[in-house]
C-alpha cells in the first residue's frame, strides 16, 4: 500500500481500517487480521500497526478480546459516528479546495449539484 510520506503512517492505517468498515469489507463483529498479517499485507512495521489498532480500540471502533484478537465493535452508534466523522473530513477537504479556488459557498453547492446531474446522465461510461 502506498502512503503519504508527510502523515504518520499509523494514522493513515486507522483511516484505512475505518474505510474498510464503512464500505462493508469489515462488518461489525468481524475479526481484524492479526497484527503481523496486517504488517505484511500493508508493508509496514509491526509497531505502526499496533499503534493504529491501539488508537482504534481507544476510540471504540475496535474491541480487543484477550487471547482471541481484535474485532470490529458491534456498537452501531459508534460506527455511525465514525462514518460521520470520515464524511465530514472529506467534505472539509473538498470545501477547503474549492474555497481555495475562490468559490463562495452558494457556488459550491450549485457546482456539486450540476456535477452529480451530469454524472447520472453520462452514467453508462464510467
Amino acid at each position: 500500500m502506498e502512503f503519504d510520506d508527510k502523515v504518520p503512517i499509523y494514522y493513515q492505517i486507522e483511516q484505512y481500517i475505518n474505510r474498510e468498515i464503512i464500505v462493508g469489507n469489515l462488518a461489525p463483529g468481524d475479526q481484524v487480521p492479526a497484527v503481523r498479517q496486517l504488517a505484511l499485507t500493508l508493508t509496514v512495521n509491526v509497531n505502526t500497526i499496533q499503534r493504529a489498532l491501539a488508537e482504534l480500540i481507544r476510540d471504540g471502533i475496535l474491541v480487543s478480546e484477550r487471547g482471541k484478537g481484535n474485532f470490529v465493535t458491534t456498537d452501531t452508534a459508534v460506527l455511525a459516528q465514525m462514518k460521520q466523522r470520515v464524511i465530514e473530513d472529506e467534505l472539509a477537504e473538498t470545501y477547503d479546495h474549492l474555497a481555495g479556488l475562490g468559490m463562495a459557498p452558494a457556488e459550491m453547492v450549485a457546482a456539486l449539484e450540476g456535477y452529480i446531474k451530469e454524472r447520472k446522465e453520462g452514467g453508462s461510461h464510467d
Partner: peptide, 28 residues
C-alpha cells in the same frame, strides 16, 4: 521510510539527530 520507527542521522562524524518517524510526520 514506511518501515521506520525512528531515524538516526549521521553528519560531520557524529550523530546529529535521533527522532521517531511519527514525530517527524506529525509535523507535516
Amino acid at each position: 521510510d514506511q518501515l521506520l520507527d525512528q531515524v538516526v542521522v549521521i553528519k560531520d562524524q557524529t550523530v546529529v539527530a535521533q527522532e521517531a518517524a511519527d514525530t517527524i510526520r506529525t509535523q507535516g
